[in-house]
């Protein structure tokens, strides 16, 4: 009894520190979004009032958008924002829900994320070795960086998935106590 409590406590501490990292990432993408809003506005203003458009600044827009959507995946998992079809789910007990989330993360989320991470290795490497740059004159260089956000975002999703599993293991353990 004593030892299960201790291990539960340890588990909770791990989960809390993982979660706080995910939250920090959430705040980062929140400000990336705010930056993106002003970036888009800046480009419109430049075009209409100064007749001046910078391809590089326009490309920064979607670079920010990419960070927002790719790292948002993991953050949204932690926050429980990914929609479910819940007409059955809502009637399940807390432990059943926890089992569904653990098994779902292991069997649905992990394979999907892993396939994308490994599948994008060559994709990113190609851009890196060829020193790929923007197709448009005056655009951004080092295209591999933004392409590398794909595996990076999904690695973050894996991490969030792991934390999500911990969370539901704790729920199950607590229900047993």
């Amino acid at each position: 009894m004593e030892s299960t409590n201790k291990s539960l406590l340890r588990l909770k501490r791990v989960e809390a520190s993982f979660n706080s990292f995910i939250d920090k990432m959430g705040r980062v993408i929140a400000w990336v979004l705010i930056l993106m809003i002003f970036n888009v506005l800046f480009d419109v203003v430049m075009r209409y009032f100064f007749n001046n458009s910078s391809i590089a600044m326009q490309e920064v827009e979607w670079h920010l958008f990419s960070i927002l959507i790719l790292f948002g995946l993991g953050y949204a998992l932690k926050e429980g924002s990914h929609v479910r079809v819940d007409f059955l789910y809502d009637n399940f007990s807390v432990t059943t829900k926890a089992y569904i989330n653990i098994i779902g993360t292991l069997l649905f989320l992990f394979p999907f994320a892993l396939l994308i991470i490994f599948g994008s290795y060559e994709y990113v490497m190609d851009a890196y070795t060829m020193d790929e740059i923007s197709e448009d004159p005056g655009g951004l260089t080092h295209r591999w960086i933004v392409k590398a956000m794909i595996p990076a975002g999904f690695i973050f999703l894996l991490f969030a998935g792991l934390t999500y599993i911990l969370k539901h293991i704790i729920i199950i353990k607590e229900a047993k106590v």
Binding site: D126, M130, E132, I133, E135, G139, R143
Partner: peptide, 16 residues
């Protein structure tokens, strides 16, 4: 992923 493609060379000027 595809053995063959149909496109135009200049779309890839970012790569070469």
């Amino acid at each position: 992923q595809y053995e063959m493609g149909h496109s135009s060379a200049y779309y890839y000027k970012g790569k070469s």
